[in-house]
């Protein structure tokens, strides 16, 4: 008796649902947000799946998430810290680099996983409807786990070197949000473009690798000559985010107006990306 009622309730909750599929495209625009909310559990489950699969049957499991930044850090410390002796204004080099790396690794993880997510999940996409945007979006959540591990590593290094956190720390969530937005922007663009142009898949690993050196991760942006700074921050929106990270965590550098160019660009590209994705969404199952 009780069971029966429960089923009725579930049904009643959706009793008013009405779907209109119109070839001209009217009628679905404003439903999208509401729909995303309805599918929130799928978002969580997909993120959980990604997370579980990554470390399934690995011996070291979670440790891998910490090992990767550590190895990169060692290389950076040798090349940039020792050999090139970049000026970190007194901050111990490992702390300096890790602060930037935490944001960069998050970015590169999200861009590469969400960029290929539609292709990885194409079997699913051709068999069932769900708001496709969930696929790339869910990767932003998974990336946060790795980010947290890198961040813990950073805290350990700060304790070890006796670096006290900057009072700007309260701004970190803002920059984290920017990092998330920037990663998703690229992720959404790449995933939508790669539906039609598979070539994009091959460009991404390359782009991420070049990006690591084209972004002030291993060195401060003050190293870039003044006259190129605008171009530097505009071409590479992550530059502003990384500088912001470092500023809020260890108080290194300063908030420059140039950063806001980066942020404005990210916001613009994000909105355009969503619109483009929406356009591609319809033909996705036919092309994939």
């Amino acid at each position: 008796m009780f069971k029966k009622c429960e089923i009725c309730n579930v049904r009643d909750a959706h009793a008013m649902s009405k779907t209109i599929i119109d070839s001209t495209g009217k009628g679905l625009q404003f439903q999208s947000l509401k729909e995303l909310y309805l599918y929130r559990d799928l978002f969580l489950t997909l993120a959980y799946r990604e997370f579980r699969i990554r470390y399934a049957q690995t011996f070291l499991g979670f440790l891998w998430a910490g090992l990767q930044p550590l190895v990169t850090l060692v290389i950076f410390a040798i090349v940039f810290g020792r050999a090139l002796q970049v000026d970190t204004s007194g901050v111990p080099y490992p702390v300096f680099a890790l602060a930037g790396m935490s944001a960069w690794m998050y970015f590169s993880f999200v861009v590469s996983t969400s960029g290929k997510s539609l292709i990885t999940d194409q079997a699913m996409i051709s068999k069932i409807y769900f708001p496709r945007i969930i696929t790339p979006l869910s990767k932003a959540l998974v990336g946060l786990i790795d980010f947290a591990i890198t961040f813990i590593l950073l805290i350990l290094f700060m304790i070890w070197y006796g670096v006290s956190p900057s009072p700007h720390m309260v701004w970190l969530p803002v920059f984290l949000l920017m990092a998330l937005l920037a990663s998703l922007t690229f992720g959404i663009w790449v995933s939508a473009l790669s539906v039609r142009y598979r070539d994009i898949q091959h460009i991404i690993p390359f782009m991420v690798q070049v990006g690591l050196y084209a972004t002030p991760v291993a060195y401060p942006s003050s190293l870039i000559p003044e006259k190129y700074q605008l171009a530097y921050f505009l071409i590479n929106p992550m530059a502003g985010v990384i500088e912001g990270f470092r500023w809020s965590i260890i108080g290194q550098g300063e908030v420059q107006p140039l950063m806001f160019y980066s942020f404005g660009l990210i916001a613009l590209l994000f909105i355009l990306g969503l619109l483009y994705f929406k356009k591609v969404e319809r033909t996705m199952a036919d092309i994939l």
């Binding site: 049904r11 959706h14 009793a15 649902s17 009405k18 779907t19 209109i20 599929i21 119109d22 070839s23 996409i125 051709s126 068999k127 069932i128 409807y129 319809r282 033909t283 199952a285 036919d286």
Partner: peptide, 20 residues
Amino acid sequence: KTLSRITWPTSGRIEINGRV
């Protein structure tokens, strides 16, 4: 596939009343 919203129709319209 069109009824399930997997692919988008080129012309015409579908109205579905209820949870699918």
